[in-house]
Design a protein around this nucleic acid. Structure first.
Length: 359
RNA sequence: GCAGGGUUAGUGAAGCGGUCAAACACUCGAGACUGUAAAUCUCGCGGCUUAUGCCUUCGUAGGUUCGAAUCCUACACCCUGCA
């Protein structure tokens, strides 16, 4: 049933480079995708985002549904028109909020009831609802609504339950997706990613992957990692899954983006990754420099430093000549420009890593 | 000149006889952050440091007391009334 979506350009062992088509343009892989949760990559204009060379930007169903609501965005022309972002847009399903807001949600087979942490409003998300919202938003790529389990505490016992529920929810997500796209042409139809769960249980992970790959979804998303487990545990799982992927569809590792993990993922067959860390760290004054060295720009030692963050970097911040001294000062006086400049640098740092694997 | 009020660690500001190296906030120093409840959070912030440890601090100098940042005296400076 599933057709060939992904075109491989080169393959070296488990590492592959290629491309696939979305209705908003072609995506080259491996690729890093910054998170624009509320419709903006925090503090950056679409032009600044584009300057980093990234090809896809994320947005979030949960957040945009809460505010301003998908109907508002639809009225204002859809996500692209609304956010002025021309790059292909991928919306996350809200599944991650099942995990991150676990203390204020209630999961049932039908879906998840959240308490809005801002004002206490009750909001309900289900597989169907999530797909409907993503469709209304106008996403080019969407993710099925899944059930994510934390891996660092006493919740691991939920792994089996979440694994099973994620599959039932995927079938519902897919059915809703097919219902809403049945009249669309191939060129206007968005893409749907199914999510693999299973925690740190290899047998569950394998069955989950086989299940997702057996369905006519357009892409395979690996979820439920980087949620509290150790780096070794995460890498072990990525290594285990690597030979099990089919070649016909893009593989998206959800939420992973530390340079070390990014490389590990790509070297184990991953095509796409998203992560908040380059922008969050950027706003918090932490930049990466060649060798994955962390530069804490707020450190007192940088206040007189005339050098750019990384002389080998080709981002607009480094090419623009912004010194560590300038950035240090702007962070200390809480000027938002500093966070924006370092976010650009960090996103570019990750995208450059991806580009190295495309050769 | 007379009468009040005040002077606490980098800053502001609690404390008003023992449990005070001294609340709290900020500044400052360091760190964390992986499908963003995150321009957030954590730790440290007199000195020595392994410390439930020692030493030096609460305008200055004396005094009372077993014990003082806290009470008394003098002095210095600041603020407010009356002249």
């Amino acid at each position: 049933m599933s057709k060939q979506i992904f075109t491989t350009n080169s393959q070296q062992g488990l590492i592959r480079s290629g491309s696939f088509r979305t209705r908003a343009g072609v995506v080259t892989t491996p690729t890093f995708m910054p998170d624009g949760t509320r419709g903006a990559v925090k503090s950056l204009t679409p032009e600044q985002v584009a300057s980093t060379g990234v090809e896809v930007v994320l947005a979030n169903t949960y957040h945009l549904h809460l505010q301003p609501g998908e109907q508002v965005i639809k009225k204002l022309g859809g996500l692209h028109e609304f956010t002025r972002q021309k790059l292909p847009l991928l919306t996350d399903s809200g599944g991650f909020q099942v995990f991150s807001l676990a203390h204020i949600n209630k999961i049932s087979e039908d879906g998840v009831t959240f308490k809005d942490p801002r004002n206490g409003d009750t909001i309900f998300l289900s597989p169907e609802k999530s797909i409907q919202i993503q469709m209304e938003l106008g996403a080019d790529m969407m993710v099925a609504f899944d059930d994510v389990v934390a891996l660092d505490g006493d919740k691991r016992h939920r792994t089996l339950e979440a694994f099973e529920r994620t599959h039932r929810w995927l079938e519902r997500s897919l059915a809703e997706f097919q219902r809403l796209t049945k009249n669309m042409s191939a060129t206007e139809r968005p893409l749907l990613f199914g999510v693999v769960q299973g925690g740190l249980d290899k047998d569950l992970r394998k069955r989950s992957l086989e299940n997702v790959q057996s369905l006519p979804v357009d892409g395979i998303a690996i979820g439920g990692l980087s949620v509290g487990e150790s780096r070794e545990e995460m890498h072990d799982m990525l290594n285990y899954l690597a030979p099990l992927y089919t070649k016909d569809r893009p593989r998206f590792l959800l939420g992973v983006g530390d340079p070390i993990d990014l490389r590990y993922g790509i070297e184990h067959g991953i095509d796409m990754l998203d992560c908040v860390i380059p922008t969050r760290n950027g706003r918090h004054g932490v930049a990466w420099a060649t060798g994955d060295k962390k530069v804490h720009l707020t450190n007192a030692k940088y206040i007189n430093d005339p050098e750019v963050i990384d002389p080998e970097c080709d981002c607009t911040t480094c090419l623009g000549g912004y010194s560590k001294g300038f950035l240090c000062h702007q962070f200390k006086v809480k000027e938002p420009l500093a966070g924006a400049l370092v976010s650009i640098h960090n996103i570019r740092y990750l995208q450059r890593i991806c580009e190295e694997y495309r050769k």
